[in-house]
């Protein structure tokens, strides 16, 4: 009982040929840059984009084989949360959530009751009579989620569910989404270009670039052994878990990370390797975060070098070959690592 999608199709300049599998209860993130074909993959699973070749199988039932079998979207056990949410503007919030039930022939009264339940679950029952345009971005997303889940789909598809939000609200909405997704027991396939989403939400990631899967696995696996520069850039980030109070994240090992904006509570801070500045002496820069460390490994990739540091806060830094020559680093050398607070993204856990 799983979702298996082997999707091959040509669409304009896009040449998509990828395979994705989602096991029961699992949330898989398809991660890749814009234009990689992620959304097309999702549309293919939803039945909005027929395959040229391949197969889409949900719980052992083939819904598209690129040939004879094509099950229309309305007959697939799916729910979709679209990037722009695509709520029906001419209906109330309640009617939006009840839409799928009504379309499936559920009687009006029962559909309304169930829609109210779903709105209550996402904390928006008081908006039942409102028009979608009265909602904030985060609220609209929750309505879209409730609408998609109201029909009890086996598979929930999420297309860049956080991309439409401004940076200020994204972290909080992401935390809400994480809660709501956790309460859904079916299979979930998330498409995103933001590794932070994957870190915060996904069990496994599938990295797609130019229409091809370049790497797949758990986040730990992919992060530990990025198979390409692109993957390294995308997922090869430092994740620092800890508890936040007063704008400072404290790790279990006792390291302090000053962060720019974050809610209080357990969080994960994302520090990109190229944001880490290495110096021999303690720097006198504006960086709020400076940690001592010892070089344990040097890994040269093209003109860049990844430097693994050990210390109170283990980090991976990425510097240029020129910088390496200047610093003359070798394993065992002591260095200082500095990161600006504004370069650190924080996601609640």
């Amino acid at each position: 009982m799983s979702l298996r999608a082997v999707v091959a199709l040509q669409l304009g300049t896009l040449d998509l040929d990828v395979e994705v599998e989602v096991r029961p209860g699992e949330l898989v993130a398809v991660l890749g840059p814009n234009g990689a074909g992620k959304s097309t993959l999702l549309r293919a699973v939803a039945g909005l984009q027929p395959l040229d070749r391949g197969v889409v199988e949900i719980d052992g039932r083939v819904v598209d084989d690129g040939d004879e079998v094509f099950v229309e979207p309305e007959h697939r056990p799916i729910g979709v949360v679209f990037q722009q949410y695509l709520l029906f503007e001419h209906m109330s919030v309640l009617e939006n959530v009840a839409f799928g039930l009504r379309a499936r022939g559920v009687r009006a009264a029962e559909a309304r009751t169930r829609a109210h339940d779903w709105l209550a679950r996402v904390g928006l029952d008081e908006y039942a009579g409102s028009r979608p345009r009265a909602l904030s971005g985060g609220q609209a997303q929750r309505v879209a989620l409730a609408r998609a889940l109201a029909t009890d789909p086996r598979v929930l598809l999420l297309d860049e569910p956080l991309a439409a939000l401004d940076v200020g609200t994204r972290a909080a909405v992401r935390r809400d989404l994480r809660q709501h997704l956790a309460s859904f027991e079916g299979m979930r396939l998330l498409v995103t270009h933001d590794p932070v989403d994957a870190h915060a939400l996904a069990d496994r990631v599938v990295i797609v670039e130019d229409g091809r899967v370049v790497q797949a696995g758990t986040l730990a696996e992919v992060t530990a052994r990025p198979r390409s520069r692109y993957v390294a850039d995308l997922v090869g980030v430092n994740l620092v878990r800890g508890a936040v109070t007063d704008g400072v994240l404290r790790t279990a090992a006792g390291a302090h990370v000053v962060i720019a904006d974050a809610p209080a509570g357990d969080c994960v801070a994302v520090i990109r390797p190229h944001s880490v500045l290495l110096t021999r002496e303690a720097p006198a820069s504006s960086a709020r975060n400076v940690w001592p460390g010892v070089v344990v490994d040097l890994d040269r990739r093209g003109d860049r070098v990844r430097v693994d540091l050990d210390g109170p806060l283990p980090l991976t830094a990425e510097i240029t070959v020129a910088a390496l020559d200047e610093l003359d680093l070798r394993p065992g050398d002591a260095v200082h690592a500095a990161v600006k607070a504004t370069d650190i993204e924080v996601a609640p856990t």
Binding site: R43, A46, E74, F82, L86, F88, H90, F99, A103
Partner: peptide, 23 residues
């Protein structure tokens, strides 16, 4: 894509036309 959204919610083409497109 609004019609797409309706389809993924279980609405047939005709139901989508009546309830989403037409309004």
């Amino acid at each position: 894509r609004v019609e797409d959204a309706a389809r993924t919610l279980g609405a047939s083409r005709w139901y989508t036309f009546r309830r989403v497109t037409l309004p």
